[in-house]
């Protein structure tokens, strides 16, 4: 259960988010520059709202005065360009935030990247990078998962496969997943709920349909 109710002054508009998420896949859908990434950053703790509160499973992550630092939030974050550590092997990347070898083994098996463990990020394909990044985020046992346009640079077929993978993982890992995209088809296919976003405001799901 993730509760958001915060405001943050951005360059051209006020980011004003009020929403409550269950263990579902939520799509933030909107044009670029509408505040989607900033919203994810505020939830992850990479930047902070001006006021309001953020609450995860009953724990206050932010309430205006105190803020839980990014390292203590246990929220997984998949960046648009995957942000794999280029100087580490796939294995070192995945183990960076996790010492649960059994979990790492399971995850790599589910996603099918066991054969990549000794490779470096620049030696593997885009789809493979995407899977590694997903496994790396889940290996830290996150309480929520944020994905910032994770499939945008993949070809159609790989994107298909990755969609299936995400759905499969979500059915095993019941946590709130927030996915940012501006691909309408992707939004419809993956989202339990779709929240259109424009100029820092969330619209109601009806507007989208």
């Amino acid at each position: 259960m993730l509760n958001l109710d915060f405001q943050k002054r951005l360059n051209h508009f006020l980011l004003d988010i009020t929403a409550s998420f269950q263990n579902e896949i939520i799509i933030l859908f909107g044009p670029s520059g509408s505040g989607k990434t900033t919203t994810l950053n505020c939830i992850a703790g990479l930047s902070h709202p001006d006021e309001g509160q953020i609450e995860l499973n009953g724990e206050k992550l932010f309430d205006g005065k105190s803020k839980v630092p990014v390292q203590k939030r246990r929220i997984g974050y998949l960046f648009q360009n995957y942000a794999l550590f280029p100087h580490m092997t796939v294995q070192k990347n995945i183990q960076y935030g996790s010492n649960d070898d059994e979990l790492v083994r399971q995850l790599t098996e589910v996603v099918g990247i066991q054969h990549l463990m000794t490779s470096y990020p620049h030696q593997i394909s885009g789809g493979e990078k995407q899977r590694v990044a997903l496994v790396r985020a889940l290996a830290t046992k996150p309480r929520a998962l944020l994905l910032d346009e994770p499939f945008s640079s993949l070809d159609r077929q790989t994107r298909e496969q990755c969609h299936q993978e995400l759905l499969r993982l979500h059915s095993r890992w019941q946590i709130p997943i927030i996915l940012v995209t501006h691909d309408e088809e992707e939004a419809r296919k993956l989202g339990d709920r779709i929240l259109p976003m424009d100029q820092g405001k969330l619209g109601s799901p009806d507007e989208f349909w």
Binding site: A44, G45, L46, V70, Q71, K72, R73, R74, I75, G76, Y77, F79, Q80, N81, A83, L84, F85, P86, Y96, G97, S98, R136, A137, T140
Partner: peptide, 16 residues
């Protein structure tokens, strides 16, 4: 000279 998100990624993974 490198993508600052790699540092952000490490932070979200709990690294000091």
């Amino acid at each position: 000279n490198y993508d600052s998100n790699v540092e952000n990624a490490a932070l979200t993974m709990g690294a000091s």
